[in-house]
């Protein structure tokens, strides 16, 4: 309170102060142009970078999506909406869309739920908890390719650790990464293993920000452990959950390195997600138009999802 009075006071003083002549000119200019020149000056470098590396590629990509082009030949063939029509009718693209939904729901759900669980565990004042926190977070900072190579070896059906453990238990480990259905499960699990550290850390920070008084009050009101979680922890973590879902969804759509090294999108197309498909169409099949059209679809999809999440956030999440 004190501080804001101080600011108002200072502004009043500044207005009353009589300007010198050079200042008068500046003031005059400033009155005419407002804060625009300064605004432009400050914003220009960033805007320029965004324009060159984000907005222009976006526009150019939309243009390419109307072309048939192999990325080398000097001429591009205009085909209108043909690439979009192709995607609509292509059974492979339908499979890819289905995979993307499964992968996104699996990884976002997995990292958020497990992250909360780990955060609750790691919030306990136990011995060695700092080490445990480090262990949970460690995979997140490893390179995706390294993690994938590690898991390729772990999951090898003939020499891998997982197969070895399975044989102790008297069962047979399937060829996870080369199995029509299990490959997707394996990729999702590895993705969660790598990324759960991030959601855990963010949730942990959120948990530690919840005022102790709220729990005390709830306890006084006779709330048990589950009720405290249901009526204090959950609502307090609302904004963080929203943030994590948005961020995880976007990064899940961008997953590439794990998929490339673990399965190469296979077997057949079992683990090909939308982003992987865009890469494959663009840089393996050299079909720039089709890849660009798929990228536009991905862009639209992400825009809609982000919008929905923000809407839900406004209605459901309390920031108090």
């Amino acid at each position: 309170m004190e501080r804001s009075i101080d600011v108002v006071e200072r502004e009043r003083m500044a207005k009353m102060a009589t300007p010198t002549t050079s200042n008068a000119l500046l003031l005059h200019l400033r009155r005419r142009l407002g804060d625009w020149p300064l605004f432009v000056l400050l914003v220009a470098p960033n805007l320029l970078l965004l324009a060159v590396f984000t907005y222009w590629p976006l526009v150019y990509n939309a243009y390419l999506s109307l072309m048939q082009w192999d990325l080398i030949s000097p001429s591009k063939l205009f085909v209108g909406l043909e690439n979009y029509r192709f995607l609509l009718e292509d059974s492979e693209f339908r499979e890819v869309s289905r995979n993307t939904v499964v992968f996104t729901v699996g990884t976002v759900g997995g990292t958020v739920v497990l992250g909360l669980l780990f955060a609750l565990l790691l919030d306990q004042p136990l011995r060695g908890i700092a080490l445990a926190r480090g262990v949970v977070f460690a995979p997140y900072v490893l390179s995706g390719a390294a993690v994938a190579v590690f898991w390729v070896n772990m999951l090898n059906p003939r020499f891998g650790v997982v197969a070895e453990v399975a044989s102790w238990l008297g069962t047979v480990s399937p060829d996870w990464l080369n199995h029509p259905r299990l490959a997707m499960v394996a990729v999702i699990l590895v993705y969660i293993w790598k990324n759960v550290g991030f959601t855990t850390i963010v949730y942990l920070a959120g948990l530690q920000r919840i005022p102790k008084e709220l729990y005390e009050a709830a306890t006084v009101d006779g709330a048990g452990m589950l009720e405290r979680f249901r009526f204090v922890t959950m609502p307090q973590l609302g904004p963080i959950t929203l943030f994590l879902v948005v961020v995880s969804t976007i990064s899940s759509f961008q997953a590439f390195d794990l998929i490339k090294v673990l399965t190469d999108g296979g077997p057949v197309n079992a683990t090909t997600t939308l982003l992987f498909y865009i890469w494959e169409q663009g840089f393996v099949a050299f079909n720039a138009g089709r890849a660009a059209a798929a990228a536009v679809v991905l862009f639209a999809l992400l825009a809609v999802i982000s919008l929905l999440q923000v809407r839900i956030g406004e209605r459901r999440v309390s920031y108090d």
Binding site: N178, H179, P180, G266, P267, V268, N269, A285, F286, N287
Partner: peptide
């Protein structure tokens, strides 16, 4: 273009 992978994925449908 990509003929190798188009045939290859077809063969994966058979062998896998």
């Amino acid at each position: 273009p990509n003929g190798d992978q188009i045939i290859g994925k077809g063969l994966e449908r058979v062998t896998v």
